[in-house]
Structure formats: C-alpha cells, structure tokens
C-alpha cells in the first residue's frame, strides 16, 4: 500500500507526515510513505487545501489532520 502526503512545506503537512510515519512504525504496517511537494503533482489530485492525504491513489482528506484512529483505518486498508 502506498500512502502519499501532498503539501509543499506548510506546518500541518509536516505534522501529518510525522503522524503517518509514526503510526506505520508503531503498528508495523506494510505501507510505503511518500511526501509529494511538487505543485503540479499536487494539483493533479484536485485538492484545494494542503495537506492532502492519498492512499493508493485515492484522496482521503484535504486541509486537515485526521484523527489517529481514522488514519489507522485508512492505512490498514479497512475503509
């Protein structure tokens, strides 16, 4: 599974990236975490606010830092 964080350096983007990496390590999830900073790449996903969270090519959230349990559900692929 591939988890991408879209954002070009806002504070929330870094927080979200840290959160995702932390959860992946803590629960030893088989996910590949990638930070996308290229603007043209970001807008291809059609989000208006950063950070964006993309799981296997599907936009899950934009402009906010989702709660840990929600993130975990997405990263486990159960929803």
């Amino acid at each position: 599974m591939k988890v991408q964080i879209l954002g070009s350096g806002c504070a929330k983007c870094k927080t979200l990236e840290g959160r995702v990496r932390q959860l992946a390590a803590k629960y030893q999830l088989p996910v590949e975490v990638e930070k996308v900073t290229d603007l043209q790449e970001i807008i291809k996903y059609g989000i208006l606010t950063t950070p964006g969270l993309v799981v296997d090519g599907v936009v899950k959230s934009a402009g906010s830092i989702p709660k840990d349990d929600q993130l975990l559900l997405w990263m486990k692929g159960t929803s």
């Binding site: 070009s8 350096g9 806002c10 504070a11 929330k12 983007c13 603007l39 970001i42 807008i43 059609g46 989000i47 208006l48 606010t49 950063t50 402009g63």
Partner: peptide, 17 residues
C-alpha cells in the same frame, strides 16, 4: 471560508482551472 496562505497556490490553481 477557512484559508491559510500556505494553501494559496493549490487554491488559486483549483479556482482558475
């Protein structure tokens, strides 16, 4: 509308396009 200047670019692009 909630707005942060760090999102100004994606927002600008999204609007114009």
């Amino acid at each position: 509308t909630p707005f942060c200047s760090c999102s100004a670019i994606p927002l600008f692009l999204g609007f114009v396009e």
